[in-house]
């Protein structure tokens, strides 16, 4: 059965591999028989991955495959940005900034909530 899945990326990138293996999982979730619909949000220390200077080469292939399958949103949470001194100008254009209220709404709207 097709499900709406929210992937929350909560760990700082590079210290552990979840930031990119989570995207491998997104590809798998979207390409299985059920064709789940996925939304990605970066919050907590995961927000650091939205920085323009962060090396995204390891996950570029996954991001391209995801884009080929379906339109997918990459959100970064404003409160997590503020807590870490990240301004909207620091963030790569792939990411759209949303509030913690918006994150709470996404959690309500999706069937399955993963933390990576």
């Amino acid at each position: 059965m097709e499900k709406k899945i929210l992937f929350m990326f909560l760990r700082a990138p590079f210290g552990s591999i979840q930031y990119t293996e989570g995207l491998r999982a997104v590809v798998g979730m979207m390409s299985g028989l059920d064709e789940h619909k996925v939304t990605c949000v970066y919050a907590g220390d995961g927000a650091y991955y939205s920085l323009k200077g962060a090396d995204k080469s390891e996950s570029a292939g996954y991001v391209k495959t995801i884009a080929d399958i379906s339109e997918t949103h990459y959100y970064v949470e404003k409160e997590s940005m503020a807590e870490r001194g990240i301004s909207e100008g620091d963030v790569d254009e792939t990411f759209e900034a949303i509030s913690r209220d918006d994150l709470a709404k996404l959690i309500t709207e999706n069937d399955v909530i993963f933390d990576f």
Binding site: M1, E2, G32, L33, D34
Partner: peptide
């Protein structure tokens, strides 16, 4: 991962 995707598709809770 497709096996996992199928688990998730059939699950009531994850």
């Amino acid at each position: 991962i497709p096996d996992w995707a199928a688990f998730v598709g059939g699950a009531d809770r994850v």
